[in-house]
Design a protein around this nucleic acid. Sequence first.
DNA 1: CGGTATCCGCAAAGATACTG
DNA 2: CAGTATCTTTGCGGATACCG
Lengths: 213, 213
Amino acid sequence: MPRRSYGQLCPIASALDLVGERWTLLVVRELLLGPKRFSDLQVGLPGIGSNILSDRLKELEAASVVSRRRLPPPAASWVYELTDRGRELGDIVLRLGRWGVSSPAFRQSDGTARPEWTVLSLYARYDLSAAMAGPASVELRFGDETYSARIDEGQLTIGRGAATSPDVIVSLDHDTLNRIFRSKGRERNRVANGVTIVEGSRDAFESFLRLFT
Amino acid sequence: MPRRSYGQLCPIASALDLVGERWTLLVVRELLLGPKRFSDLQVGLPGIGSNILSDRLKELEAASVVSRRRLPPPAASWVYELTDRGRELGDIVLRLGRWGVSSPAFRQSDGTARPEWTVLSLYARYDLSAAMAGPASVELRFGDETYSARIDEGQLTIGRGAATSPDVIVSLDHDTLNRIFRSKGRERNRVANGVTIVEGSRDAFESFLRLFT
DNA sequence: CGGTATCCGCAAAGATACTG
DNA sequence: CAGTATCTTTGCGGATACCG
């Protein structure tokens, strides 16, 4: 059974043959911050259905976007991670996010909210022109989920897990972070007061926030 | 009737809600080189079905990606064209093409071939590092279809229609252009001998080709 | 735990006929 | 030419049952 294709001799159509189906690019999004297990992917893709996720992962593997790897003992479970080609595609997915974040539809949208998505949206909100200011490394804690953001030579990098030698560590809930980004200027600092500073100064955190629109 | 949505508070998911459905990004591709009428879009999207195209155009209009405009008399028909937001999305579509052109699946693919797609693939094949060399302006004629490619300060721009003060004008069929890109080095020049030089020198055309991988 | 396989209902896609 | 209307087909969502 041949997979459905546009049947066009065109690089764009060919790319969409590989990754243009429903859910596929969201699977890539889920892997942007590092490898995940099947069940973690399910959590990050509410409503997908295990059969569809299974199909998509096989397709992505066939397209050399994702690879399946066994975790070293004692974990001994399987994880999916982006290949080099997958990370290239990931850049495009992030650009799509940058496009989406400035859309009226996004501002008015609501739905399931997850800390990881909002943290990922830092890539979309990051303002190159504002760089240089602010601390280089921030750790964000949402309950038991921890993320780190680092700015190095104007380049933003986000990861899962604790930061190494962070300038600021904050603890917050994801609703607060969302409200921070929906506000701006002085109002934003007011909302940001709901954030607990675990380590470092509040000023440092606020100047970090100024890097994002 | 609410359109189908991922229901996630995430810029990437939100973008895919707007333009992630089947055919949508290919409609954007079709408009990358300028406005088109409904029937021209149908020609460029073999197999789409007029109802689907109609739906997609309405959705793209609602998302402010495409605008519908009446042509001045005596033409008096409607055309669809990209808005500013649509061109931003167009950049992403071109990046997807750049990703797709380097995929094994594309190299092995066949299917419907159209001159416009292959001309568009110049964006994907353009090698920044090779710039500076070659003529700045080339006109490509395929039967009654004419395209122009211009390089200005290392920036490639492609359009429909005749070039202004071209360095080279060539006449070819789209199969020849495809074979040119499937070959490389000395072999490529051999294939390129099948191209008719209408104006300018064959050397200039060959150095133009060296800008593309 | 980490998936695969199957069934069922529905909504979107494909095909085509038709109309302003 | 520019779509709309209708009908069929297919893929998706959801549930559940199964297997290493």
